[in-house]
Nucleic acid binder design. Structure first.
Lengths: 340, 340
DNA sequence: CTGAAAGCGCTTACAG
DNA sequence: CTGAAAGCGCTTACAG
């Protein structure tokens, strides 16, 4: 198995030099077309396979990108980041690159250990997929390697990141509810919990502001405690006509709860979610929601990291990827809003 | 960025040779402990990072394993194989290896193209995760590389594979229903659809046989057409007391249907699933099911492929990974079966 | 158009 | 205990 065919073998067989074989196989100048063709033919016949390690050592490039996901986002029921990773792998392929997955264990995160992909020079760049601790962000900063934060950002660190436009997505879907005639719209979510939820809330709030609608305590429904564990959602005395839930899973749970309480969705009240994950289609009725564009996020992330590999000084800043509204049946049109 | 520190740099700084540095950093014999320590210290200070490409070229080993997943198993709502891949990556880490994900596009599968990880010598072995076409199996066979089929097997090909023990899992969970006093147990699934479903059916059938229970047409409920699309499940005239569903998703759908028809689970009839995926916990009541042991599958797969990397002639044949029953609330105990 | 020489960073004998 | 030499497979100048 270790008896791999090398360029030298092809060269010997043809009585040429390995330099010529290299040029021919790489379609470089300096070989006659006849010879080039012959070399390629023989290479195919001999089952020649390119040794990328040899090229790597010459170029100082591994042609791999590391994707690091913190362990705590990798539960058996969570697959969002794996989906993103998959799309990244597909996009990397277009550049002749490969993706190496690196689950960041909680110990390594605490002890601020460099990932093995870095200390073994296995990758030309690294995408950190999912929020890591402040301390670990510093560790990442110390890595001499192009790096990119995906799906989160750091307020202080001048680092490149790509995130979903939570703010705009929530803004848009709230606008949609208002267009459908809703005037009493609540937000469901703990706005102190994560920055995504906070941003989604602010998008919702902007929509309210723009339409001259007041926000008050009554319209803020908490969905989880400080540990992120879901709690029973308390309804206000007077029912709003619509609810902007911070994510599909919460919308799903909330919908079930409304059902049990005798409210019908969307007849008695409308619900929208965010993410467009399994819960959006599992809900009854299926949810109108904001789809996070995983493919686009991966595409942008890969483009950004490849840019940085070829030009390490390249800065991209904080980049937003827009989602899009998926219309389903969880929203009732009360009356159509006249054009403003 | 390309100005990486090499062993030579450390050697020069210390006035020794790079051979000595190599020995020291690799904890090999032939360097005094004092020097060894000093070298390690300086290496740390200089931020030395090992160049694995150089080692690769010497050893003829990439220290990567490719994991190939056919595109059609990578839908937005399917994450099972990604979960397996993730576990594989974690297991590979224990061996100092990395996992490279390779989504096999439908075109490549049809045109019988070798994966790029292979033609570029990027991996020391490859795990094919998920059923590929007969033709493509042949293509895989032609790859001169340790390879392993995961979660499917080929009847003809003398190839190494690791699969969940569908047969035994279904056998066990059917036994459990019988222990709970059920005597009229149906199987829900198209037994001509996939080999997993067929094997699960046969496990169910074995349990019936062992308990002297007859199988007849009435107890076989089809759940999908020849294209794999779900169809409405037709209930027999006389209701069985329990249903062995071929997977959790079908159990979930079937449960909803029973609910709508006025049957209560588990009071009116019991249901069990298979897989222990999201649907198992989403179902109401949550499903008793057979958990597919993803971690164990990954562990076995990685061990097998690593064995084959060090010894290419190693054969492991067809290896089964046992699942385990997860007890929840979808089964009613009719009366306890006395010990046989 | 073709090839000899040197080098990428490391390791493996082998010599001292 | 330490190091000079050779080599892994390829590519990049450079010479002919």
């Amino acid at each position: 198995m270790k008896s791999n065919i090398t360029m030298k073998d092809i060269a010997d067989k043809l009585g040429v030099s390995s330099v010529t074989v290299s040029k021919a196989l790489n379609d470089k100048e300096g070989v006659s077309d006849t010879l080039k063709l012959k070399i390629k033919k023989v290479a195919g016949e001999m089952g020649y396979r390119f040794n990328s390690a040899a090229k790597s050592i010459k170029d100082g490039l591994s042609y791999n990108i590391g994707v690091m996901i913190p362990q705590r986002f990798t539960g058996l029921r969570e697959s969002f980041y794996l989906q993103v990773y998959q799309q990244i792998a597909i996009q990397l392929d277009h550049y002749g690159y490969f993706g190496i997955l690196n689950i960041l264990s909680s110990e390594d995160e605490e002890q601020l250990n460099f990932p093995r992909v870095y200390s073994e020079n296995k990758v030309d760049g690294i995408i950190i997929l999912g929020q890591v601790s402040k301390k670990y962000i510093e560790t990442v900063q110390n890595m001499e390697l192009p790096k990119l934060f995906l799906d989160f950002y750091d307020e202080h660190a001048a680092i490149d990141s790509i995130v979903t436009d939570n703010f705009y997505g929530a803004y848009e879907i709230t606008n949609y509810l208002i267009q459908c005639g809703h005037r009493d719209i609540a937000f469901v979510g703990n706005i102190y919990s994560t920055s995504s939820i906070q941003d989604r809330f602010l998008g919702y709030y902007k929509s309210l502001l723009e339409h001259g609608m007041a926000l008050n305590e009554r319209l803020l429904l908490n969905d989880r405690d400080e540990h992120g564990a879901y709690i029973d959602i308390e309804l206000p005395e007077q029912m709003p006509t619509a609810f902007v839930c911070n994510c599909d899973q919460v919308a799903y749970i909330f919908g079930e709860r409304l059902n049990n309480m005798g409210y019908r969705v969307p007849d008695d009240c409308s619900i929208v979610g965010f993410d467009n994950d399994v819960y959006a289609t599992l809900a009854n009725p299926p949810l109108t929601t904001v789809e996070v564009d995983i493919e686009q996020m991966a595409r942008s992330a890969v483009k950004a990291i490849m840019d940085k590999v070829s030009n390490p000084h390249r800065r991209i800043g904080r980049m937003l990827v827009q989602g899009k509204i998926i219309y389903r049946n969880s929203v009732k049109t009360l009356h159509t809003e006249p054009a403003e």
